[in-house]
């Protein structure tokens, strides 16, 4: 059995006039420590799937198992979720923001607290604990959001286009940081993106989604040569453009 099992997920959004099927027949397995990407055009349901994995709402049918247990059984801290923007709470200091998850389960004292504050320097934000989010740049804020997500020690990280609101240079740097941090903590991660390059540079495997309704169209294994490299270096590897072209063609074919 896999670490994360997604079984026959169907999801339909109901409104008064319409019933729009966002996801159909989604089944996939993710192993512990893997980094996988959901890639696809907008409207292919990749964010819906991520939200379902995160437990934000139940799927219309199908089930999700984390270490063979249904998700809602221990919903507390098994999932970490990062959004497109940092959504740090502007009225809390960086330190309070990062301790938020622990505070909710009343573990924000003692050893846990010290461990969490150390995370801040792990993501290169040492000394900013007493500042407010508005005093940090976009890249620093997203790093703080990463630390907040990691603070509760989640079993799996869900990244919903976390780099898409950043400028290109910051995005490249942050990709490296997230990649390195997740590998060093041995975390499993799912990245949702519409950026082919980002998916190749960061993941072990890429699921390409097709729209209307969202299905897994094709799965790409990222070659071993690229997997071990930091995202920035992976982008410069000779294998990178080859895979990029393959996925590009596949994406093009989806449009017709």
């Amino acid at each position: 059995m896999s670490f994360l099992t997604i079984q026959d997920i169907h999801h339909t959004y109901f409104s008064n006039q319409t019933a729009a099927t966002a996801l159909a027949d989604i089944s996939l397995d993710i192993e512990k420590g893997e980094f996988v990407s959901f890639l696809g055009p907008s409207g292919c349901g990749k964010t819906t799937l991520l939200s379902i994995i995160a437990g934000l709402f139940p799927p219309t049918s199908g089930k999700i198992l984390l270490e063979n247990k249904p998700l809602d059984a221990d919903s507390d801290t098994s999932i970490g979720y990062m959004l497109q923007q940092d959504y740090l709470f502007p009225w809390k200091t960086i330190e309070e923001n990062i301790l938020l998850g622990l505070k909710l389960i009343k573990k924000d004292e003692g050893l846990e607290r010290i461990k969490t504050l150390k995370l801040l320097s792990d993501v290169g934000l040492g000394g900013t604990g007493k500042l407010y989010p508005r005093e940090l740049s976009g890249g620093m804020r997203q790093r703080a959001a990463l630390a907040r997500t990691l603070a509760v020690d989640p079993k799996i990280l869900l990244l919903d286009e976390p780099f898409s609101a950043l400028d290109y240079q910051t995005k490249l740097k942050l990709e490296d940081l997230v990649f390195e941090t997740l590998k060093s903590f041995g975390k499993t991660a799912v990245l949702v993106t519409h950026d082919i390059g980002e998916a190749i540079a960061m993941s072990d495997r890429i699921y390409l989604f097709s729209p209307n309704p969202g299905r897994v169209h094709k799965t790409f294994e990222v070659p071993d040569e690229l997997r071990g490299l930091m995202p920035f270096h992976a982008r410069n590897h000779p294998q990178y453009p080859i895979l990029f072209q393959t996925i590009w063609k596949e994406l093009e074919s989806l449009e017709y």
């Binding site: 934000l56 919903s75 801290t77 979720y81 938020l100 909710l104």
Partner: peptide, 27 residues
């Protein structure tokens, strides 16, 4: 209040009381 703040809290497993205290009221 931006629903994404609630989403952040929800993924941390916050109850409705906690969501109210941490996000809705201060915002």
């Amino acid at each position: 209040v931006d629903p994404n703040y609630l989403k952040v809290l929800q993924t941390f497993g916050a109850t409705r009381t906690q969501a109210f205290r941490e996000a809705i009221l201060p915002a």
